[in-house]
Simulated scan of single mutants.
Amino acid sequence: MKKFILYILLGASFGVQAQVNIPRDTSFTLNGTYLKEKKYRPYITIAEVKNEDVIQSSLNLVYDTVGNRDLFLDVFYPKGEASQKYPGVILIHGGGWQSGDKSQMHTIGKALAAKGYVAFAVEYRLSPEAKYPQAVYDLKSSIRWMRANAKQFQLDTRHIASLGTSAGGQLAALLGVTNGNAYFEGNKRGNARFKSAIQAVINIDGTLAFRHPESVEGKAASNWLDGTYEENPKNWESAAPLNHVSKKSVPILFLNSSIPRFHAGRDDMINKLNKYRIYSEIHEFPDTPHPFWFFNPWFLPMMDYTITFLDKTFK
């Protein structure tokens, strides 16, 4: 896939403050992925959620600022009584830690909001802009912001899950095994008195170990982890959710394509979770491309598994 870097200007038409000189890799897009995958599976269609009458949204809200760089998130939440509270889900897009954007999680966010969840599609800094672990700091900061602004979105701060796709799945899982680990908090730039802990994980085809017999991680991982394994083994080991499983880890749902490399470390992680009697669940979709979460016929069953898991864990 051809890749290129753009330096973009976000203007008033997007409802956000103008920002310049932010490097963007635009190689991973929904339309480009659809055209690629349709060649092999002509029956697929892009999933949509159209029950807008039962949900509401707030887009491009600033949750943190790093230097002169604002970080944004989008919120989708149910229409309902102001006194009612709903569990939350942070949505983390994929793209090899170098591409993709939060809009790619909007369909999942709308589907969650329609089922009684507050969904936050979060921007985080990618490898052209910042190396590991800065993305983790961003995501933890966004969770603190969620709790600080819970009343506005009727969020139940006791129940927040992370859901990620591909690289976002790896990050979602890392959030679920690092609750209370000061190393992954950064300097707590904003809302420092609020906690970043989450209570459940949905990992959609995200690797759990970068250096593992099942892993096939290469250039994209090296770009994000600031070097190859030989050059920076500390980051490669630190970024692997498998290496942080403990009694503080949270229940996790694995939703996987039929491509083995994206399950790397899954079975080992489940064995570790079992030792601590922490619940886990696997659903693997046969004959699926890696980015199956974008498309019918897999979107609805994927969301059914997700909602069932969240309802069981939070409600």
Rank of each mutant, 00 (worst) to 15 (best):
A220P: 08
A12M: 06
M269P: 11
D267S: 15
H290K: 13
P301F: 05
V89N: 10
T29H: 01
A82S: 14
R277A: 11
L73Y: 04
E129V: 12
K312R: 14
A121I: 06
R24L: 12
I46Y: 08
F309Q: 07
I259C: 02
V49H: 13
R266K: 15
R277Y: 04
E185H: 11
V136R: 03
Q98V: 08
E123Q: 10
R266Y: 13
A167Q: 02
D74R: 03
I8V: 14
G206V: 08
G176F: 06
T308E: 14
G169Y: 02
Y7I: 00
I143N: 12
A130C: 11
L310V: 04
I90Q: 02
I108Y: 03
W236K: 00
G109T: 05
N21T: 01
V122I: 03
A200V: 05
A18N: 10
F4G: 13
S222D: 13
W236E: 07
L126R: 08
P133R: 10
N243V: 03
T157A: 12
I90E: 07
L273D: 07
F314H: 01
Q104K: 04
L126Y: 08
Q154F: 02
H93C: 04
N191Q: 12
N68Q: 12
G186C: 04
F292L: 10
V177M: 02
K115M: 02
L242I: 05
H290Q: 05
Y34M: 08
S246M: 03
E231W: 09
G11Q: 08
I160V: 11
G32L: 07
F294Q: 02
N243T: 10
S249E: 00
F14K: 09
F120R: 12
R211G: 07
Q170A: 10
N179G: 12
T33G: 11
L174N: 01
A12E: 15
S127E: 08
S162C: 04
L126M: 09
L126W: 08
A221S: 08
K195C: 06
